[in-house]
Design a protein around this nucleic acid. Structure first.
Length: 528
RNA sequence: GAGGUUGUAGCUCAGUCGGUAGAGCAACGGACUUUUAAUCCGUAGGUCCUGGGUUCGAGUCCCAGCAACCUCACCA
């Protein structure tokens, strides 16, 4: 990939660092080694190696091996004097093989201390000329920060007690031509951290762990759903109609069919077609695309989970949501009371459940059925009031005054029907929809319905939504093919959507969505 | 889309009132076989985001642009 920054004939301006590194690269090649390395079998993860520290023994010249005292952590033990007290002898530990990136080097004459790091941890290498021999010591002289190396040696402790691999063979596995970020501050510029996520992962504390936790959360969700008999499918990402949510789509085009297409904004309508088709428990966990602003909680592409269960309802989905979330927390080894920013979230189930109207009255201070009072409050809040349905207005007030107050976790249940075009109404209250949203720290994380399966009502609601709205802004586009599917009979069902990125933010104590997306959307680097 | 903040060496950051461009880390040369952000001596490294303007003189002041971040708007 060539950057837009300069033509390929332009040498990079940072020539000094690169030429020094290229010089060492040549020297490695002259030693008969491949500076780009190759297969390196039978290594042990550094985290696993560290776990074997207690196998190191002190072998006195006479007598039996002695176990080492605990020297890790904050222990005040002076390991050097402990060793002296034991008399002559040596430390012997298990043989290990490790590989990783050089993150720190300290040179001391015919001796080098090199810290290498893999994705499970860091460990120090002791490289002595006597111990590794002339050739490998010469190789170690060509090491730069950022290089990838392998090592064979014995697990061991230095006189200060530091867990170390006493190297006897070195392997060169890959040269880095660029200098790494500053060694104690790391990468600070948030733009660079996102653009050069590979550096952020390697050199910023907690970043690798956060993204590995993201993977564990997603694995846990798949496992929970699989255990409960749900089938994972992959629906189309290219849609002819942007349905299932209210959002502006990205537009694209298929050449051979000369067909305008949009990237999907939701997973809903195809999953419900599968309910019609007899897939009784079905879900998709995938990317959706919304052509909207970017902010701390919004990225134009994000990961969504949608789950549908035949013969369930929104209460079924509430219980499922609790299981999905609490198991995901267990999967990353975290407690149910989790820190988030300055606060703490208690995920101990069952989560609180409050009705939309109840919360509305409590936080907006206006009776939920007093249209006049709501309208005047909306005006006070500078909300657009002209030509808006009373329930739409009420929901605008709800978003403005109530959502921020919902620290959660709290299920907000029973929404005004008129803002829920895909949801079944309560039999006893046709103006109330069987819907919940799960709120955490003022953020909507999950949204679920008892799914509407009456094709006539669905068609009518699509139609109502379209009236008087520009097509882009309508909440649900008329999808005749979807209505036709409903006409064949969709089982009553519960449906659930979870914003995976937001869930990961909350479970990993990440302040912005960009902290949990490896490559968030950025403008291309400027070309002056 | 609006406002605010920021942009200086590969990285992290100083830069006073407008008067020769600075430090630490990284790099290069040297010393050191138990270091821990190793230390010590020496060297090199700059499109001060870009383009205009004011001025004898601009990293600094003014205007425009670019990018990031924050707030807002948009956003089931």
């Amino acid at each position: 990939m060539s950057g837009s920054k300069s033509s390929s004939s332009d040498p990079r301006p940072s020539g000094i660092h690169e030429s020094s590194r290229r010089g060492k690269l040549r020297k490695i090649a002259e030693m008969g080694l491949d500076p780009w390395g190759g297969r390196f079998d039978d290594r042990t993860a550094i985290g696993t190696i560290r776990d074997r520290a207690d196998e190191i023994r002190f072998h006195p010249e006479t007598g039996d091996p002695i176990a080492l005292p605990a020297v890790d952590g904050e222990s005040p033990l002076d390991f050097r004097s402990w060793l002296n007290q034991q008399g002559p002898g040596q430390l012997v530990g298990p043989r290990v093989r490790a590989a990783g990136r050089i993150v720190l080097q300290r040179k001391a004459g015919k001796l080098r201390f090199v810290d290498i790091q893999d994705w499970t941890g860091k460990i120090q290498l002791f490289i002595g000329k006597q111990q590794v021999g002339e050739a490998d010591f010469e190789l170690a002289g060509q090491f730069d920060l950022g290089d990838l190396i392998g090592v064979d040696g014995a697990l061991w402790r230095t006189k200060t007690g530091e867990l170390t691999i006493l190297a006897d063979h070195l392997h060169f596995l890959g040269k880095s031509l660029e200098p790494p970020p500053e060694k104690h501050h790391g990468l600070q510029d948030p733009e660079l951290r996102q653009r050069m996520r590979y550096l952020d992962l390697t050199y910023s504390d907690g970043v690798m762990e956060r993204f590995l936790n993201r993977a564990k959360i997603i694995q846990s969700i798949r496992r929970t759903l699989g255990d409960e008999g749900f089938c994972e499918i992959e629906g189309p990402t290219l849609h002819t109609i942007a349905g299932g949510a209210a959002a502006r789509p990205f537009r694209t085009h298929h050449n051979a069919l000369d067909l305008p297409l949009v990237l999907r904004i939701a997973l809903e309508l195809h999953l419900k077609r599968l309910l019609v088709g007899g897939m009784e428990r079905v879900y998709e966990l995938g990317r959706v695309y919304r052509n909207e602003g970017i902010g701390p909680r919004h990225n134009p592409e994000f990961t969504m989970l949608e789950v549908y269960q035949a013969y369930g309802d929104y209460r079924t989905m509430m219980e499922l949501t609790e299981r999905l979330v609490t198991r995901a927390i267990q999967a990353i080894g975290a407690p149910l009371r989790l820190p988030y920013g300055d606060t703490e979230i208690d995920f101990t189930p069952p989560f609180a459940r409050h009705s939309y109207n109840e919360l509305f009255e409590q936080h907006a201070g206006v009776p939920p059925d007093d249209h006049q009072a709501i309208r005047s409050l909306a005006r006070e809040l500078n909300l657009e009031t002209a030509n808006r349905h009373p329930d739409v207005l009420k929901n605008a007030v709800f978003e403005e005054r109530v959502e921020d107050q919902l620290h959660g976790p709290v299920f907000v249940i029973d929404y005004p029907a008129s803002i829920c075009p895909l949801t079944k109404r309560k039999a006893s209250h046709p103006k109330i929809a069987e819907r919940f949203e799960l709120f955490l720290c003022g953020m909507e994380v999950a949204n679920a319905y008892t799914e509407l399966n009456d094709p006539d009502l669905q068609e009518q609601l699509f139609q109502t939504q379209l009236e008087g709205l520009p097509e882009e802004d309508s909440m649900a586009k008329m999808d005749h093919d979807f209505v036709r599917a409903l006409r064949h009979g969709m089982p009553p069902a519960g449906g659930l959507g979870i914003g995976i990125d937001r869930l990961v933010m909350l479970l990993t104590n990440s302040p912005t969505i960009r902290d949990v997306i490896l490559f968030p959307l950025l403008r291309p680097e400027s070309s002056p």
